[in-house]
């Protein structure tokens, strides 16, 4: 299926644009690189370009910039508390980068870099390692008490502690697979139904309507998955700071 030039998974193929071999490793500039740069440029355009005039009464772009700032600031405050202020820039950048990556992927013929497990797992791994290091810095070896559920009989520990550890270790997997799979599934579904449109002739109006509706849903999912990634990062940071 992946070999099929018009298959629904073909849109996820990474194409090399500039070959940059460094010490035997390919650090090529690819379509993925380009769309990462587009997403980052979009975020900068809104957050820096939109706030250039520092208007007292904000224009459209400045409103988006302020809204995003207050949205993420509120989220960090609600989930982590005042201590979370330090991590706000990171969470904000994560959210905006993923959001703009997801949204840029909705542009026809574009590429969705967040639909690649390598990218989502890299981000999730950084979050996971960072949060774990933060927990150890904060609590030392006491951090291991995080794996002991409070208020549970010692007899249950041999059963519960492995479960807690497994659930902790699966965090980066669930975090990365959730984003990757949502993007993959949504874009594949769009492509599959879009393929029905020319195939069905006049009756193609039905899949066309469906694809239109699905596009709206995908835009919602683009927001939702960026939000989920950011809020889970906040919750993990909160866990590392406050244990239980």
């Amino acid at each position: 299926m992946a070999g099929d030039a018009h298959g629904p998974l073909e849109q996820f193929r990474i194409r090399e644009l500039v070959d940059i071999p460094v010490a035997g490793v390919d650090l090529d500039i690819t379509n993925s690189t380009v769309w990462m740069a587009v997403a980052a440029a979009g975020v900068i355009a809104v957050m820096v370009g939109g706030t250039r005039r520092r208007a007292l009464v904000p224009g459209r772009l400045q409103s988006i910039a302020e809204l995003s700032y207050e949205f993420i600031a509120g989220m960090v405050r609600d989930t982590v508390g005042d201590e979370g202020r330090k991590y706000f820039p990171l969470i904000f950048t994560l959210f905006m980068f993923i959001l703009f990556g997801n949204l840029a992927g909705m542009i026809p013929y574009s590429f969705t870099f967040t639909s690649h497990i390598a990218v989502t797992f890299a981000m999730a791994a950084v979050v996971f390692v960072g949060v774990t290091v933060l927990g150890f810095i904060r609590h030392g070896l006491h951090f291991f008490s995080f794996f002991v559920p409070p208020g549970v009989s010692i007899l249950m520990w041999p059963l519960l502690i492995p479960i807690e550890i497994i659930s902790y270790l699966s965090r980066p997997i669930s975090l990365s697979v959730r984003l990757f799979a949502n993007m993959l599934a949504g874009h594949t579904l769009l492509k599959v139904f879009a393929g029905f449109v020319p195939a069905l002739g006049v009756a193609g109006i039905l899949p066309l309507a469906f694809v239109s509706a699905l596009t709206g849903l995908e835009i919602v999912i683009a927001f939702l998955q960026a939000y989920v990634f950011a809020i889970l990062t906040c919750l993990y940071i909160n866990d590392a700071l406050h244990l239980h």
Partner: peptide, 8 residues
């Protein structure tokens, strides 16, 4: 392509 993706 993983190194390229992660590097960029």
């Amino acid at each position: 392509t993983f190194p390229s993706q992660i590097f960029w």
